[in-house]
Design a protein around this nucleic acid. Structure first.
Length: 792
RNA sequence: GCCGAAGUGGCGGAACUGGUAGACGCGCCGGACUCAAAAUCCGGUUCCCUCCGGGGAGUGGGGGUUCGAUUCCCCCCUUCGGCACCA
């Protein structure tokens, strides 16, 4: 028997696969219909901002097991790979380590690719793309222009989040707890002109998850992020003035309980009111003070603050005068920036009312009925909402309204390392698209790309000057670049047709492969990438570029891989990559172990001793299969071992297919190997060995390929997935558990398929059972072939 | 505060449809092999009691449904994750 030498074996088979282009898959002929026997297996593409970590090891091994499993089950499997190489992660890494982002990124891509190949993942490398390559971002620009032409992208002034450290605007989605999602700096609010995608146009469509097989936690996160609220927009007059102010409320049923009115400090009416107020200076001082506060501070304020304007709003339902306050707990960028305050039924309004001794009027009773609400009294809260909204509409003082928490996606960045926005600003014609034939707008080389608060490209005067494509006059290029999430919003479409130089992708090819059947990645992208990509897909479908509206039919989130009890992170310096482990143990044991630790969707702890245990298993498998190959089997009928092998085939097939339970499939094969090890000369030992090797192949493709050869076969990766023989799953005898009053008292072997009566008779015949019956006549509950419970 | 996920041996976890709780692995204990060790192999390993036949308890806590509950229902506790002055 040769010793198990993982590195030699792995190199050998990787070379065979590469020479055979084993995992490349051709595109369909033009006009081919959608293929139901295809599987698009995809994992989120990596940022090449460093090397691979154990989280990548997990994600891509999950995808790899799926790719092998479905390929061997006769599906045409598309399993591509690429790099999300533009954007802040790569640029910040470049700034930190010195050098040009392109050099850093391309060096990292080379390193990562090498690692991926030593791990032996079954990737179609012919489809590799990197988002920073002009051949890719040309089409990112082109798709942007399609959305721009469709009115789904525009440039306008709006309140946005600004990271003072990264010196750029951030999308709402990229702010976590008031801090920059990338660098952790406290984020500021600014009102500046920005490029937006109109994600809010798709808010309702994005709330439709009916076609998606996604984990509840991810759907819940998106639903909450989009945050649809139904209610009414109500118009309040202002006593003594012509102006009126609209408010949004989800509780029109509480309108009779409004006791004051509040405006956000940024509300345009505040300056008007301040001019006419005796305490105008005080009001303006409050506004200035509130504006200086960061959003985080404002939210964290322990006490409500505000200032009275001296003006009064008129409650449209009863004509009551409500004092108008300015208060910074009212946000300008939600609803209308003004609220009717109902302290009895809103906690924040109550706090404010208590602080400033404003009245509190209860209008909803304990049993959820309207009280003190004139003719509406007695209605339930739900009825009241409808009735009051209808009445307001009749009077022209309000209408039903819906508000969303979701904001439009601000996607322009004041940074260098990103896809240039292909727009020329012309004093006469406005924002003019760069014509298709002039794409891509290449990202120019510049010396100083560090963030400086305005777009670095703006300092390249030569590049900035461009003729207006419309009038030929002197224009200036858009100097901002796109958020990296734009690049990753369509990469899965480009993978389908990666070398197309005529267009971003051929619709027929994309419709053939799409949507992604299995998407795998971190749930931390639930409210960022996963929303943006859904928006893109829907927009592109409406433009007519694709024929399906959801990019990822199925999604599975994976947990964090922890090492040494703490979450691995660069800042803690405890990141150990797969490279080291693979170099020491070989790829197969690491691949097996990362999936064996526990359920893939849960956080897991990667331990050296656990990995060594897996190495033991692989060596054991090696030894036992070798012994089987070298041993002449005894003559005889297939018996218990063959049955165990068929049971294992059934279990592993179910685990990898329906259940997506990758850890238990390994356990099942271990059981089979344990059984086989007890008798390598059994008549069915060879069958059991072949089953074990074949079933574990998706996890450990190298060692199983070698063992498969040893067993006298070839090319296991092409071998059809084994099928369990149903007749072998039927046992002739079964173990019957005998219970008395629900407690196990005996276990007996009995022929399978006995009637209830026969089983009861057997149970009563057990001496142990008799001892617990005290001679009484029991009632019996029977689970055929399994259990008899006798109750006295 | 709201939403989501989860609590099972010393540890990671298994038990899929209400039917043998603890598969598989780590760790630990014992044995074989060895001059010895490592490696490997074999056996044991939820806890408590035991006259060694066995008996009792047990899946975060409390209640309920059921012949029977890790699994279903109600209440509570804890941990992790998302969102959070969103009217």
């Amino acid at each position: 028997m040769n010793p198990y030498e993982p590195h030699a074996i792995e190199r050998k088979w990787q070379e065979v696969w590469e020479a055979q282009r084993a995992f490349e898959v051709p595109n369909p002929a033009p006009g081919a219909p959608h293929n139901p026997r295809k599987r698009y297996v995809l994992e989120m593409l990596p940022y090449p901002s460093g090397s691979l970590h154990m989280g990548h090891m997990l994600v891509y091994t999950i995808g790899d097991v799926r790719a092998h499993f479905y390929r061997r089950n006769g599906f045409e499997v598309l399993r591509p790979m690429g790099f999300d190489s533009f954007g802040l992660p790569a640029e910040n890494a470049a700034i930190k380590d010195g050098g040009h982002p392109r050099e850093i990124v391309e060096r990292n891509i080379a390193t990562i690719t090498r690692t991926m190949k030593t791990i032996g993942w079954a990737i179609d490398w012919s489809r590799e793309v990197s988002t920073h390559e002009p051949t890719y971002y040309r089409w990112t620009q082109w798709l942007f222009l399609q959305l721009f032409a469709a009115g789904l992208a525009d440039r306008r002034a709006a309140p946005v989040k600004w990271c003072p450290n990264d010196q750029t605007v951030l999308a709402n989605e990229q702010v976590k707890d008031g801090h920059c999602e990338r660098c952790g700096a406290l984020v500021e609010s600014r009102n500046i002109e920005q490029w937006f995608f109109k994600t809010t146009d798709y808010a309702d469509q994005l709330l439709d998850f009916s076609a998606l097989d996604w984990p509840e936690r991810v759907i819940a996160a998106q639903r909450h992020w989009i945050g649809r609220s139904e209610g009414a927009e109500v118009t309040f007059g202002i006593d003594g003035f012509d102006e009126s102010i609209a408010v949004f409320t989800t509780r029109p049923d509480t309108l009779f309980g409004a006791t004051f009115f509040a405006l956000a400090p940024e509300h345009p009416l505040v300056t008007d009111l301040a001019e006419r107020a005796e305490n105008g200076a005080e009001i303006l001082e409050y506004v200035r003070h509130a504006g200086a506060k960061r959003a985080e501070e404002r939210a964290a304020a322990v006490e409500k603050t505000g200032v009275f304007t001296g003006a009064y709003a008129i409650n449209p339902v009863n004509g009551e005068r409500l004092p108008i306050w300015v208060a910074d707990y009212v946000l300008m960028d939600y609803g209308t920036g003004a609220i009717m305050a109902v302290p009895a039924h809103d906690e924040r309004d109550r706090e404010f009312a208590e602080k400033f001794s404003l009245p509190i009027v209860t209008v909803i009773s304990e049993d959820d009925r309207l009280v003190d609400s004139e003719s509406f009294s007695g209605l339930s809260s739900a009825e009241g909402k409808a009735a009051i909204t209808a009445w307001l509409a009749e009077q022209g003082k309000g209408e039903p309204a819906v508000n969303y928490r979701l904001r439009d996606w601000g996607f322009s960045r004041q940074r260098y390392w990103g896809c240039p926005i292909p727009i020329i600003h012309c004093p006469g014609c406005g924002s003019v698209p760069v014509p298709d034939e002039d794409l891509p707008v290449l990202l120019p080389e510049i010396d100083d790309y560090r963030p400086k608060g305005e777009a670095p490209l703006a300092s390249n005067e030569e590049w900035m000057r461009a003729a207006c494509p419309n009038c030929g006059g002197e224009g200036r290029r858009e100097a901002e670049t796109m958020d990296t999430f734009v690049d990753s919003s369509w990469y899965f479409l480009r993978y389908c047709d990666p070398h197309n130089s005529e267009t971003a992708f051929d619709r027929g090819i994309v419709d053939y492969w799409g949507p992604v059947d299995f998407y795998q990645g971190g749930v931390d992208h639930a409210t960022m990438h996963m929303i943006y990509a859904r928006f893109f897909q829907k927009a592109l479908a409406d433009i007519g570029l694709v024929g399906f509206r959801e990019p990822f039919a199925r999604f599975h989130g994976n947990g964090w891989v922890q090492l040494g009890g703490t979450k691995m992170s660069k800042s803690k310096g405890n990141v150990v990559g797969p490279d080291e482990f693979v170099a020491e143990y070989g790829a197969d044991p690491v691949r097996l172990y990362i999936l064996f630790i526990g359920p893939a969707e849960q956080d897991m702890e990667f331990t050296d001793s656990g990995l060594e245990g897996m190495l033991r298993f692989v060596r054991r498998l090696w030894r036992i299969v070798n012994e089987v190959a070298e041993t002449e089997p005894r003559e005889g009928e297939p018996g218990a071992l063959a049955r165990k092998a068929h049971e294992t085939i059934a279990r592993v097939t179910d685990d990898l297919g329906r259940r997506e339970s990758f850890n238990t499939a390994i356990s099942a094969v271990m059981e089979l190997v344990n059984e086989l090890s007890r008798d390598v000369a059994a008549p069915d030992a060879r069958f059991a060995a072949e089953a074990a090797v074949s079933l574990i192949q998706p996890y450990a493709p190298h060692v199983t390929e070698e063992l498969w050869t040893l067993l006298g076969h070839s090319e296991l990766w092409k071998e059809p997935w084994p099928v369990a023989d149903e007749s072998m799953l039927q046992r002739e005898t079964v173990q019957i558990v005998l219970q008395v009053n629900g407690k196990v008292r005996d276990r007996i072997e009995a022929p399978a398929g006995l009637s209830e009566e026969a089983l009861i008779a057997l149970a009563l015949g057990s001496e142990k059972v008799q001892g617990f019956l005290d001679g009484q006549e029991p009632r019996a509950f029977v689970v055929p072939d399994k259990l008899v419970n006798l109750v006295i």
